[in-house]
Amino acid sequence: MKVNFYTSLREYSERKEEFNKAIFDVVESGSFILGPKVTELEEQIKAYTGAKHAIGVASGTDALVIASHILGFTDGKEVITSPFTFLASTSCIAKHNAKPVFVDIDEETFEINTNKIEEKITPNTAGIVPIHLFSQMNNMDRIMEVASKHNLRVLEDAAEAFGMRWHGKHSGTIGDMGIFSFFPTKTLGGYGDGGMIITNDDNLAQMTKMFRVHGASKKYHYDYIGYNSRLDSMQAAVLSVKLKYIDEAIKKRETVAKWYTDKLSDCEYIRFPKIKGDQSPVYYVFNLLAEKRDELADFLKENEIGYSIYYPIPLHMQKCFSYLGHKKGDFPVAEKISQEILALPIYPEITEKEVDFVCDTIKKFYRK
């Protein structure tokens, strides 16, 4: 049996008429850049998340770069974040010549260890970028407490966290600004790139609206040196269809996660991350820690089972960040987890039979 790590085809097949209509309505309207469909999605995101403002941009990476610029993460300022994440969560800091300052992760959640943030703060620290990864949010109570005490700005990287809530507050709405990615594999994913910046601050929202169109307050009137980063109307139309069913999709992901935990609970070579705090998790990915991870991954591949490794090399050990001067052993928890973590297929349309096959294959590997 072949089990894809992810496929969009099953969802498309289920709602083909809705998706086709949404796409062709955009084609027939002739409005492809920003326009009514983007405005409609922005209003829907505001309603779903509770954010005061939502501004569509071209990708989650652009959202991080633009928000970092607006919040002053520039020109030698220090910004605290995690080394255990995707490149864009930190390259957005480096691109503006600010300095990423890494804090090791919690071994049970894989989120930034909030108890270690304050010791990294200096007079040059400008902000914190918490990254809500895998299935849960960071401890935002602690992060906001530290930020308030030291007058720091907070940019929530919620690229993978659509639908997650901390004490009932949606990801991205607690800090100064938050961002989402609509990359196709995401919980709310389009049929191409797309992203969104959310904020409850009127001034930050107004700046973001200008920054996404070259820094213009109105056509050919430029207040800032901005960006060309606009959410595509066709992507917005697709996302509006998907947003109608997002709660159902999140619930199905939870069911799939429970299948995995129940079926693998008796496998002594497997460990699962823990959910901590008063939050509503969303299983965008399903990670576990596995003994002989690389050998297991090879065995899954041999049996046509898709998998991914988030992330095989922590950022402090990446060549592009060698200028920061870190060495192996500086962030031991991130380094340890990177050697054990493995993500299994999870999406709303995966079947229990497929999950059974994945779990049976894993157990077969360890019986060899």
Rank of each mutant, 00 (worst) to 15 (best):
V3S: 10
T7L: 09
S13Q: 15
S13H: 12
E18G: 10
N20M: 13
K21S: 06
A22G: 04
A22S: 11
V27G: 07
K37D: 04
L41N: 09
E42C: 07
I45D: 10
K46C: 12
Y48P: 00
G50M: 02
A54L: 06
S59C: 06
G60S: 07
I66P: 00
H69W: 14
I70C: 05
D75W: 09
K77E: 13
E78Q: 05
V79E: 15
S82C: 10
F86N: 11
A88V: 08
S91D: 06
I93A: 12
A98Y: 01
P100L: 00
T109H: 08
N115G: 14
N115I: 02
E119P: 04
T122C: 07
T122A: 04
N124P: 10
A126N: 03
I128M: 03
I131A: 06
N139K: 06
M144K: 14
V146H: 05
E156A: 01
H170F: 10
G178V: 08
S181Y: 03
F183G: 14
K186S: 06
L188E: 00
Y191P: 06
G192H: 02
D193Q: 07
D193F: 12
G194L: 06
L204G: 04
A205K: 01
Q206P: 02
M210W: 03
R212N: 01
H214S: 13
A216W: 08
H221F: 15
Y227N: 02
L231H: 07
D232M: 05
D232R: 10
D232L: 08
M234V: 15
Q235R: 12
A236E: 11
A236H: 10
V238Q: 07
L239E: 09
I250E: 00
R253N: 12
T255I: 13
V256N: 07
W259R: 06
T261V: 13
D266A: 15
E268G: 11
K274R: 05
G277E: 08
Q279K: 01
Y283C: 01
F286Q: 08
A290N: 11
A290S: 14
E291N: 03
F299A: 00
F299I: 02
K301W: 11
K301G: 04
E302Q: 10
I305N: 07
G306Q: 02
Y307I: 03
L315K: 09
M317L: 15
K319A: 14
H326E: 05
F331Y: 07
K336S: 01
S338A: 13
E340V: 02
I341F: 03
P345R: 00
P348T: 05
E354R: 03
V355D: 04
I362K: 08
I362G: 06
I362L: 12
K364V: 12
R367A: 09
